[in-house]
Amino acid sequence: MSKNIKAMLAEKLAANTHRHASAQQETVVDYGRTHIMIPVEAIDPNPYQPRRIFPQDEIEALAHSIAEAGLIQPITVRPVGERYQIIAGERRWRAHKLLGKNSIESLVGQTEDSDMAIYALAENIDRQDLSDYEIGKALRQVEDLFPTKKRLAEALGLARQDMYRFFAFEELPPAIRTRLDANPRLLARSAAEGIKRTLGEIRQKGVHTEAVIDECLMHCWQLLEDGELDQTKFPVHLGKILTAREQEGIISDRQVTDISQAGKRVGTIVRDTRQFVVKLQAGVLSDQQEIELQQFVQALVSGKGKVSQVVTH
């Protein structure tokens, strides 16, 4: 036998043995799970999926990579009636749909409802691409499945203190949470906890009305959305402007008058040393009324008189 063949055989033997040894294990692990191609149309997302937003550009990037390199890891599904539900891999499934693929490589396993939520959550927490706000919401969904919060934290591999930070989002005013629904990544759990603490301190002092607190909060939020305020500085900044407001209120004779409609506050008139502000929620006045108000103010400011006519019109 020539030396070449000897070397080739030795190399082949080593490669074959290695290939088989490393493959064998997987077969045992996946035992009892079926590994099949499933039509994309026969698959539904996990109803317990905490992720609320699947950015189109991320799905497109993933689709591009799947088109180039193929699906590296099959998605995991469970059978529900005639169809399948995703346990893990919603992004990969969406990318397949985007690519117009008929079927997707899947592992089929049996999973309980409670585990579906935990899997989806655990997978996303591990990968760190789910926002803290979404995790906080998802934690509430699954907490009843555990006897204590401590056990919940353990099941997810979180420190207990850290887990409580996720719950801080719930203490934020509804207005902020509505904005977070649309843009969950803007605020991390530590910032949320900081805001919660600042709000607690302010309320304890009792110098500001809820309306003023909300106003300052939304002011900071706008700065955050505009990228002018770093989220880590949010709690401090909020504290600062509220304190400033407090002092301003003492020096200036700031007056706030509520405007009500059918017993509900729909706006304010604020007067201080610098400004006179009339604020109304959108829709309180009809289009016609808004035009009249503008004309009225214009007439008033330009000092042309005949004010009473406009008003009584």
């Binding site: 493959a23 590994h35 099949i36």
Partner: peptide, 18 residues
């Protein structure tokens, strides 16, 4: 399969078993 196949049987989606 190990002799003539290009894939390892464990990597194959649908084998005779399925």
């Amino acid at each position: 399969s190990l002799h003539i196949g290009k894939k390892h049987p464990s990597e194959v989606t649908v084998t005779c078993a399925e």
